[in-house]
């Protein structure tokens, strides 16, 4: 088994962050998870700007778990920027949101989201989701070639 994939979790709600991280832990997935607390931070991380300029310290993740509803730059904007950037457009972005809204779903896929997952309420289901993400996106899925 090769080195577990690294994940960028963009989530403004610290409790959700804790649950997701806990779920990964519970599922005994050894992925490295970097958390960005808002859209701005996520973009700085991905574009290697500001304090994330050092790519060795903050390498590009293998996958982005992106919340949509965030203050300031929201998930949609972050997604648009990722998919609009030549260097990031092949980076898989999984929307992880509590919104079932059609509009959100349509806009996400239109903007190039690779998957759309609704945050479950129960922790048990969270565990299932996390496992499935890991199994599919981080194990089964063959990544596009990186530049």
């Amino acid at each position: 088994m090769i080195k577990p994939a690294s994940i960028l979790l963009v989530e403004d709600n610290p409790m959700d962050v804790e649950l997701i991280v806990d779920a990964f832990k519970e599922a005994r997935l050894g992925n490295k998870i970097h958390v960005a607390k808002n859209g701005k931070e996520a973009l700085e991380f991905l574009f290697g700007e500001g304090k994330f300029a050092d790519r060795k310290l903050y390498p590009l993740p293998d996958i982005v778990l992106l919340d949509l509803k965030m203050p300031g730059i929201d998930g949609h904007e972050v997604l648009r920027r990722i998919k609009g950037a030549e260097m990031l457009k092949r980076l898989p972005v999984i929307i992880l949101t509590s919104s079932r809204d059609e509009g959100d779903r349509a806009m996400s896929y239109d903007n190039g989201a690779n998957s759309y997952l609704v945050k479950p309420v129960s922790f048990g289901e969270f565990l299932i989701v996390v496992k499935q993400v890991s199994d599919y996106w981080l194990t089964l899925n063959v990544e596009p070639p990186m530049e």
Binding site: D16, L19, K119, S122, F123
Partner: peptide, 19 residues
């Protein structure tokens, strides 16, 4: 929608406690 987030936290952490 906004109620969902704290609810998720309540139920998520409750489950962790439960487990």
């Amino acid at each position: 929608h906004d109620l969902r987030a704290p609810l998720r936290s309540i139920s998520g952490f409750a489950e962790i406690i439960d487990r």
